[in-house]
Write a protein that binds this DNA or RNA. Structure first.
Lengths: 343, 343
DNA sequence: CAATTCTACTGTAACGTTACAGATTTTAAT
DNA sequence: ATTAAAATCTGTAACGTTACAGTAGAATTG
């Protein structure tokens, strides 16, 4: 042990300020570089020294200065979550945030929320992040089959994960809900109740999971012998318009006896439309829907629900982005979760 | 004009990298300091020079490097939103986030979401932010009358805004919903329907707005001549327990004929409990509740609702924090929004 | 024992920004 | 014409970190 360590000296001066590597170097009598390397467990630092540095660091409550690290290394320790502010009704995006946070707790990463309106150019937030280098990783949702954001992020080598799949030959981390299985099983459930004329409240056609949902729905119709009653609104339609459209459809002479609903938030509007038309769930019609918060059955116990866990999705995507940052191959960072039907 | 400006030189070298002050200095032939000062409109820089620098900067798409600024000045350009992950059901916190973002767009500020469980020590996230200096301003919710976080933030001179008021003599920016008016008016509406025995699903007693709600409720009972039917669950109780408690109460021989509900998310559970007991809203009992997302009336048109706009709250708090950072006195940064009853 | 290789540690420079203390030129005042 | 005062502009240093290129001494080799 060198004998230039300073104990107790200038405690008053140093103790109120936030400690830096310099503080630790001063207290241990080591060089700043040595302290830096000791804290990151570099191989060329003695075991005893490392131990001593770690002790002092934790005693001082040392936390590396993010700005210093970021300026020097370019590492931001930020995960950007790009959120659409339009589609939010039932708080599914907060569940995403909380899921992501769960994973980020205990890592050096922070979550920065970058909201945008999907009626505006969806490339804007991604371009901004790339141009300013303001994040180490990005999470995006509302994925299209050939999503330009996915192209751009891949091209620029920015680690990212998507909530939903693409379909344009690009391999990238994603988490998705198995919408095909959902729609197929939803039809199965409805047919099991004797329903044969089924409508689908589907996602907007430009999103990838529109196709998944359609395929599941149509193979379901085929497999279980039912027919489709067309519905022109989507889950992106404002809720009151959905309600009105369902009411009109239920009053028409083309009324379905079953409906599959691709979003938990829309189910309330669908139910309202059915009731507004004077029809009864479980009698005139049955509905099978996704739900993110288990409350639909309190509204109408007859609603058939499959749980979609957004918190889990957030966790999966956060893990995927971090793994990607750490160099894990994208192939290994893809997951799909299955619908869980309430018994 | 000096003649050492470099036009077109080393375009290839410079154009792919992100431009810095150095880039602009090089292109204009000015010093780095001059460019820096020109961009912040300092008084000792010539008008013509400023114009020229601004031109080049915008042409290059110059954006100041956040790490550089942060390291030098300590300014983080971050607003931290401390959120409780437990209370979230209906997505009210995403509305907060989106409201805040609306205001932050076009400013240099970013929003970092710092979630925590309110079953854990609520001081932790605030302490972390203060110790690491990781934000210029903080927004917190679930405010207690003598909230230790408010004390700490005030003491440390960290700009902040609260979602809810305190009651311990500290002046600070806040936005609050007028829960006293809400509860008072809720009782009024119920009594107007002939209800006299009213229960209150109230906030947990440690939060400030518990008191506001109680006062409004009790003066309401007094003013309109009704009595309280005690209810032991709060809006923090898990939804299924609320449902069960309401069901039990409605089945008892002490059943209320009116209920005031302090949270939109809980209203669904209350309604479920009422129906589970075989009672009917509008017949056996009436309910007046807050709601953040206008859907309750689709579930049961009989529910009497007052809108609480969390997006607006987010906007107000974001404006308040930024104003506070800019030195505006806290007295001027307090706002209360009134309940808006659906016609 | 001299030469070589390890082990353990360190100083310098740089990331991009801004505060500060000048420096230079122009204009105004005597 | 000389001095004083503005008006503009600039270099240096520092914020905290890490990559890099060392150095000094101990241990190993032939």
């Amino acid at each position: 042990m060198k004998n230039k360590a300073n104990f107790g000296a200038t405690v008053t001066e140093a103790s109120r300020e936030r400690p830096t590597l310099k503080t630790i170097a001063f207290m241990t009598g080591l060089g700043i570089t040595t302290v830096s390397r000791a804290l990151k467990d570099a191989p060329d630092i003695g075991a005893e020294t490392k131990e001593r540095v770690r002790m002092v660091a934790s005693q001082l409550g040392y936390q590396p200065n993010r700005a210093g690290v970021r300026l020097r290394t370019g590492k931001t320790n930020v995960i950007a979550l790009v959120l659409s502010i339009d589609e939010e009704i039932m708080g599914f995006s907060s569940q995403l945030v909380f899921g992501i946070s769960e994973v980020l707790t205990g890592t050096p990463y922070h979550i920065v929320v970058t909201p945008h309106s999907h009626s505006k150019d969806p490339m804007l937030p991604v371009r901004y992040i790339l141009e300013t280098g303001s994040a180490d990783g990005v999470i995006i949702s509302r994925i299209e089959p050939d999503d330009p954001r996915v192209r751009l992020l891949s091209e620029r080598n920015m680690p990212f994960a998507t909530h939903g799949r693409t379909d344009a030959g690009l391999t990238h981390p994603f988490h998705d809900f198995d919408n095909e299985a959902f729609a197929h099983q939803a039809v199965e459930k409805l047919v099991a109740l004797g329903r044969k004329r089924i409508a689908l409240l589907q996602p907007p056609s430009k999103l990838t999971y529109y196709t998944h949902t359609r395929i599941g729905f149509q193979t379901g119709l085929h497999d279980y012998g039912a027919e489709e009653v067309p519905l022109r609104v989507t889950i992106d339609t404002p809720l009151d318009e959905i309600r009105n459209a369902i009411e009109a459809l239920m009053r028409s002479n083309n009324a379905p006896d079953g409906i599959v609903c691709s979003a938990g938030s829309a189910a309330i509007a669908v139910n309202a439309g059915i009731e507004a038309a004077g029809k009864r769930l479980g009698v005139d019609i049955d509905m099978a829907t996704k739900e993110s918060t288990p409350i639909l059955n309190w509204i109408r116990p007859e609603i058939i629900t499959a749980r979609e866990d957004f918190r889990h999705a957030g966790r999966e995507m956060a893990k995927a982005v971090i793994a990607r940052i750490d160099g894990v191959e994208p192939e290994l960072l893809q997951s799909i979760s299955q619908p869980v039907w309430k018994a």
